Amino acid sequence: MQSLLGISGIIEKYIRTGLDEEEQVKLNAWLGEDEANAALFRQLTDEHVMKQHLDELDAIDIAKGWNAFQERKTGQETNIRDIRKARWWKYAAAILLPLVIASGMLFFNKEKQDNDYEYTPTALRYHNDVEPGGNKAVLILSNGEKVILDGDSLASLGERDGARLQNDSARLVYEKGFSQPGEVVFNTLTTPVGGTYSVVLSDGTRIWLNAMSSIRYPTHFTGSERTVFLKGEAYFEVARNVHQRFIVETAEDVRIEVLGTHFNVMAYNNEKEIVTTLLEGQVQLKYGSSSPTYNLRPGFHAVFNKQQQLMDIARVDVDGAVAWKNNLFLFNNDNLEDIMKQLERWYDITVEYKLKTKPKSHFTGGMRRMENISKVLEMLELTGGAHFEIEGRRIIVTSP
């Protein structure tokens, strides 16, 4: 439970400048504690009410008031330097805003009890709802046979394609060091819309697959390279081996080389960019046969623009890049279309836009990915940037 004054301070910052990720998570947690909290938040952040309060503060003539006070006190008019000192009055007034909000919260809660205030629950606002995705995947063997995997089973899959396999609660494990002699064969692990899974390769490398993704890999590695092929998005924790480079190949001939490291690759076909984010170690990237080699350091990402065929490297918040692996949505000044693409992949929905104008709003905040979609949409609506309707598995986005 958030303290009244603590949450009022967060709401005040939300109104003034916006929140950082930690503050947004705290606000979301408070909003999720009680349906009435969301109703209260909407009232406290009502544009017309806040404009009236801000206009009243803005109308105060600090310099004139300070001069009048000085004249009464000393009989002399103050100078510009004294006016600058007096500005603290305005800052002091601003500090009172959280207390005003807290008072409003107390009044609102009391008024709700006295007048039997009714809040329309999410379940009634959205006549349909969509449950989140979960742990599910399909293993495709070298002969085309498909093995359905889910996160609830713990079973040995026996020897397949010269490897010994175990399905261990949302993780497919290839026994390390076990391999039958013969030619190298490939398996493919693929996740559907609304699915996620992980695999431990024969060298000990662990790979997490996001929804609508696939990874193709040999059942055991030979030679000087360990090469896998990615479509979609995956997070890698590569087992270090100085004698065998680990290589990830994606669409657009983007090639990522490592020895042992932790990194995320987002390479969906319907995205304009391929993004590689490094958490630990060092990776090298190339695209095509004639491009230069790009070195990536921890805390940076490399963004390859498919249309322009250009690579850009910049510092980034790595937590946002791997939030999906931790069952979180984390938005950092993201636009609505990018967010809705994430929701499409995770909730197995389609999105239809019926907006008067293209939304300019950007969204920052966080939420668990295991919530029903109505909870996510409600949080997005609180920004005032869009309105949502659910019709089966179709989300209609309209202007607020």
Rank of each mutant, 00 (worst) to 15 (best):
Q2E: 15
G9K: 15
I10M: 04
E12R: 13
I15M: 08
R16Q: 14
L19Q: 13
E23I: 07
V25Y: 14
L27G: 03
N28I: 06
A29M: 00
E33R: 09
A36F: 11
F41G: 04
M50K: 12
G65A: 15
F69I: 12
Q70F: 10
R72K: 14
E77H: 10
T78G: 13
N79K: 04
I83D: 14
R87Q: 10
K90R: 14
I95Y: 09
L96Q: 13
L97E: 10
N109C: 05
D114L: 15
D114H: 02
Y117E: 08
T122F: 11
L124M: 14
Y126W: 06
V130C: 01
N135D: 14
A137H: 08
L141Y: 11
L141G: 09
L141N: 04
N143T: 01
V147W: 05
D152G: 13
G162Y: 01
G162E: 03
G162I: 06
R164I: 08
L165D: 04
D168K: 10
D168E: 14
Y174G: 00
Y174S: 00
E175W: 02
K176P: 01
G177D: 03
S179H: 15
F186M: 14
T188V: 08
S198N: 11
R206T: 15
N210I: 04
I215A: 03
R226H: 00
T227A: 09
T227H: 00
V228K: 01
N241A: 01
R245Q: 13
F246M: 01
E249L: 08
T250N: 09
T261M: 09
V265C: 04
A267P: 01
T276D: 00
T276C: 03
G281T: 03
Q284R: 15
T293A: 11
L296Q: 09
G299D: 12
F300D: 14
H301A: 12
F304S: 03
A314C: 08
V316A: 11
N326K: 14
N326V: 06
N326I: 05
L328I: 00
D334S: 07
I339S: 09
R345L: 05
R345Q: 00
W346M: 08
Y347S: 09
Y347P: 08
I349H: 02
T350E: 15
V351I: 15
K356S: 10
K356E: 14
H362S: 06
G366R: 10
G366V: 08
M367C: 06
R369P: 00
E371P: 00
E378V: 07
T383A: 03
E389H: 07
